[in-house]
Every structure is written in structure tokens, then in C-alpha cells.
């Protein structure tokens, strides 16, 4: 546990390093997720229309 904490502290630089990594990961994940959801929504529509015509 103390080893983990020591690692997370990164000699006192942790408070700068982790927000930087977290922000990058968060924003990039968000930007992958957004078009993916739109893509799924777009995909649903033609399929439903197809089902109705059958």
C-alpha cells in the first residue's frame, strides 16, 4: 500500500502528472465514444425501416 502511494506521489510531481494523464485519457475516450454512439443510432434507423418494409 505504501509502495503504491509512493508510486502515485511520483516524488511530489504526482499532482501534476496524474491530472495531465487523466485529462488526456478522459477527453480522448469521450471523442471516441461520441461518434460511436452516433454511428449506432444511424445504423438502427435503416435496419428498422428495412424491417418495416418486410
Amino acid at each position: 500500500m505504501t509502495m503504491l502511494l509512493n508510486f502515485l506521489k511520483l516524488n511530489g510531481y504526482g499532482i501534476y502528472v496524474w491530472p495531465a494523464y487523466g485529462l488526456v485519457a478522459g477527453l480522448l475516450a469521450l471523442h471516441l465514444f461520441l461518434p460511436w454512439r452516433r454511428w449506432r443510432a444511424l445504423n438502427k434507423k435503416p435496419k428498422d425501416a428495412h424491417a418495416q418494409t418486410q
Binding site: 511520483l10 516524488n11 510531481y13 504526482g14 501534476y16 495531465a20 494523464y21
Partner: peptide, 19 residues
């Protein structure tokens, strides 16, 4: 390894430079 001058703080390099 940690940088000789900046210690562990230089690890921001790995996200800053690619961005």
C-alpha cells in the same frame, strides 16, 4: 528512468509531446 534534472515530473512528456 527518472530524468536527471526533472525527476519523475518529466513523465508528462509522454502525453504532452504526442498531443
Amino acid at each position: 528512468p527518472a530524468d536527471y534534472l526533472q525527476g519523475e515530473g518529466f513523465r508528462i512528456l509522454y502525453v504532452h509531446v504526442p498531443c
